[in-house]
Design a protein around this nucleic acid. Structure first.
Lengths: 398, 398
DNA sequence: AGGGTTTGTTTTGTCGTGCAACTTATATCC
DNA sequence: GGATATAAGTTGCACGACAAAACAAACCCT
């Protein structure tokens, strides 16, 4: 519990002003910020001047087609572009990704390679990722300051120590990715934050850009990769739980007498709605392309339709329990589940309507995330930038 | 998003000092508070003086058997006793309760009556509760200021409007308890906060007194009344969800092909581990006393043991899902589940160890709440007092 | 009795904000 | 085209809250 000195007051108000500018739909003037924060214009002016001088905010040329109101025209403010950025990395089972995102949410540079990493050696994968990162960093514009880096991983992560405890789909155990990436990031003295892929993708869904909020701000996110990862977002924040392992919806029990799961339990959701389970139930090969299942369903293939329906039913049962416990009536399907999202959602919504206690008052809804294999990388970068939004004073000279 | 003026700085530090004093195990001196908050002694002194003058804190006579260190002896500080209090009310299926709790966590006055309210008329029950409340308020010591009131209800509550949407076990629908209690509370101009019984009981379990924290601060609470209510506590705060309906663990699905539940779904936890389900599985009458089941198990009655085991298994399955999703490896059994807690916990822990993905790193544990039928009333009072702890400036003259 | 030690108070200085007056830049009206 | 209205942004001053340091108080120990 930190105390409040006068300086922290200024820090807090700098953060408040920054956040207000970033959160706004259209670039606000100093006066708009003053009105929104209930600070006085004089105070806002002083804070904004500092933030502009420090390169956090930018003054935009007033738009020509403006409203044309009487009075002195406003100076619109936005997040600076290209001055501060963060590096987002991702290791998936089938790809590596590196992205450089700036304070305005713009992707300054990006590299994505598809490569099968199942059963791979961590050190070589990290070396490859390191070279991707280095190339992306080299593309940063002149005068761009990289303030943080994050890495999205498909497994159980210990956020505190930056350790990947277990990633069954990669076959990795107890890896510290930071050491393998030091080379590429060493020169920048960047602390690498690691996080769960689903958690970070969910964060990216809730926040299109640093400090900006998307609707909804409360939802359950399901990320279908090989298994089914998940995340719970409350008020725009990812609920990571006591140790950072929250969101393992893939291993919620659908039927205690169901098929055994590789986690050691039985009847887990993953055994009903995982990628492998859905494909084999539809009579497709494991190596089938994602579009194949969708095509069959749209063609009216009975077996494929049954496969999707039963996956939807299992998802509904698992999510029904989650919604009952958390009262978060929005579910977002991401990853490979997004690709068959339209097919799944009717069945999922039907089961939810029946199984959720409060469905009578608020109907649970299913939303579908945009199909971005590197959403976790974006989320990792956004979380690093969020640190800057929270403490803008740290990057100001003062 | 509130701005920060200088006054709010003082408010925040008043709150910080108050919380520091209340949270301390033993009454701290001004110097202790300064050390804990990293404020200076001079600042703490001024703030404490104000709080003592306002009746929020009290100076205690230094203990005779003190440590006997050199230097000027300290003046220990504690929460004031009997100056500020809040009224906690509870309507259960089998009882009504009213409690007056002060800032030190002491119960100043209390009334509890056992009465069967299943299928009762809300208005008459509220009238009875009102008279209980009036009698408890009359017992308040001289000079005691009642700063808030709360009501714990066994059902779905809309916290914003103070409305009870549905309490199936009472047979109540769409009741606004505040209007029925105006008479008893009207003279005090108290805003009545309503809340879910399990949420408030869970809060009371996490906080033995206002501003004080109990271990654990993160847990899933199960409240067995007639049905099974629940609550999720994160970092000492009850997670109420988007609409305040979180925690309905009783209707998590154990088996989609299981018996129908009165909620309209099938195979809900309540059908396996509810009071009725457990008693009938054990071959006992619905009206059996709670101790009866326990007695039979301890006597080695096979049917009773089976009933408890199968309830424990169902609890384990439901809680396993919750722990996987929330990463909160502590479960607290309250209400009638607490009475058979020692019998249930071995089976529940065994199932959790098997079904929780992260059990390998952190073993999920079951704890048992103290048996207090009016724990919800205490929680309601504590939450009202928490408001004072958060904004002590509001009750100071300044 | 006197030095040492820790608590609590007083005094002075610094810093950030609010307030109000002022300047700047545009639109509108006659 | 000039006067006026309107709103944005700036400047100077006062207030309030905290920090720092010196001081007073109360107790232990030798």
């Amino acid at each position: 519990m930190a105390n409040l000195r006068q300086a922290s007051l200024r820090h807090a108000n700098l953060a408040l002003v920054t956040r207000t500018v970033l959160a706004a739909e259209t670039p606000p003037s100093r006066a708009d910020v003053a009105a929104a924060t209930s600070l006085t214009r004089s105070t806002v002016s002083r804070l904004v001047d500092e933030l502009v001088a420090g390169g956090v905010l930018e003054e935009v040329e007033s738009v020509v087609g403006g409203p044309g109101r009487p009075g002195r025209p406003a100076t619109p403010l936005t997040a600076s572009r290209g001055h501060f950025a963060a590096l987002g990395l991702q290791i998936g089972v089938g790809h590596l990704a590196a992205r450089l995102v700036d304070l305005s949410g713009t992707v300054l540079a990006e590299r994505l390679v598809n490569v099968d990493l199942a059963g791979s050696k961590p050190s070589s994968a990290l070396r490859r990722l390191g070279s991707l990162a280095a190339r992306v960093l080299a593309e940063a514009p002149e005068g761009c300051r990289v303030v943080g880096a994050g890495l999205a991983l498909p497994g159980l992560v210990d956020v505190g120590s930056g350790r990947l405890l277990s990633a069954p789909n990669l076959g990795w155990e107890d890896v510290v990715p930071g050491t393998g990436l030091e080379e590429a990031l060493g020169g920048l003295e960047l602390k690498l934050r690691v996080g769960n892929e689903a958690d970070l993708a969910a964060y990216a869904f809730a926040h299109p850009a640093p400090g900006r909020d998307n609707e909804p701000q409360d939802f359950v996110y399901l990320s279908g990769e090989v298994g089914i990862g998940g995340a719970v977002v409350l008020d725009g924040e990812v609920m990571t739980g006591r140790h950072g392992w929250a969101g393992e919806i893939g291993h919620v029990c659908i039927d205690p007498d169901g098929p055994p799961c590789r986690c050691g339990s039985t009847g887990c959701l993953e055994q009903y709605a995982g990628r492998l389970a859905m494909l084999s139930a539809a009579g497709l090969d494991v190596a089938a392309i994602d579009g194949e299942l969708r095509g069959r369903v749209e063609a009216g293939d009975e077996q494929a339709c049954d496969a999707v329906r039963s996956a939807g039913r299992a998802l509904g049962i698992a999510l029904g329990g989650v919604v009952n416990v958390l009262d978060i009536p929005t579910v977002v399907l991401g990853g490979h589940l997004a690709q068959v999202g339209e097919l799944l959602s009717p069945e999922v919504e039907a089961v939810l309507a029946r199984r959720v206690l409060s469905a009578h008052w608020v109907t649970p809804r299913v939303a579908i995330a945009p199909d971005d294999p590197a959403a976790g990388a974006t989320g990792a970068a956004l979380i690093a930038l969020e640190e800057l939004v929270r403490h803008p004073a740290d990057v100001l000279g003062t």
